[in-house]
């Protein structure tokens, strides 16, 4: 059933996958910037808003020695691939895949936001931007799912 092709119902006059892809690119740019800066041994700049340095230097910002932002890049690339593939093929399962993968990201980001607020007690605006973009992607995928005609069971 998930491999069936179901024409997408437009959202704001365009294929919803385009909206998801735009948000995926925004997430990819944010996570990409953080990854490049952190892998080069520097810390991201927050401008007038403080908190990025503390979060970047926190041991919580690493998962088995890899900066969390790198996982953000991997997640964004995977989500972007799913969105583009759905746009081109209208295969129903790709929308569900985007929804489920963004839900995994939202759960992780919920944990990371908790760490920032209650453990590090500093919030990194770059991380929050990524978290908001991911939450939007999850919500849009969910809304699109409910608006989308469902494939008939075989």
């Amino acid at each position: 059933m998930i491999t069936r092709r179901v024409p997408a119902r437009p959202l704001l006059g365009i294929h919803p996958a385009i909206i998801l892809a735009v948000l995926d690119v925004i997430g990819l740019l944010v996570a990409g910037y953080l990854s490049v800066v952190e892998l080069s041994g520097d810390v991201p700049s927050c401008g007038i808003i403080s908190g990025c340095e503390e979060v970047a230097r926190s041991p919580y910002n690493n998962f088995f020695g890899i900066p969390v932002a790198v996982f953000g890049v991997v997640l964004s690339v995977a989500l972007l691939s799913l969105a583009l593939a759905w746009w081109k093929t209208d295969i129903y399962g790709l929308l569900l895949g985007h929804y489920a993968l963004s839900l995994v990201g939202v759960i992780f980001d919920g944990w990371f936001l908790y760490v920032q607020v209650f453990i590090i007690t500093k919030v990194c605006i770059w991380c929050v931007t990524y978290e908001v973009s991911l939450l939007l992607r999850f919500l849009i995928a969910l809304i699109v799912y409910y608006r989308q005609p469902k494939p008939e069971p075989v």
């Binding site: 059933m1 129903y92 895949g97 489920a100 993968l101 839900l103 995994v104 759960i107 992780f108 799912y145």
Partner: peptide, 21 residues
Amino acid sequence: SPMVLFTAGALIVGAVIVGIM
């Protein structure tokens, strides 16, 4: 329903990742 299965799968994977963290 595929939606329920995908949601359950995502919740389990998310919980496992947070558990490891």
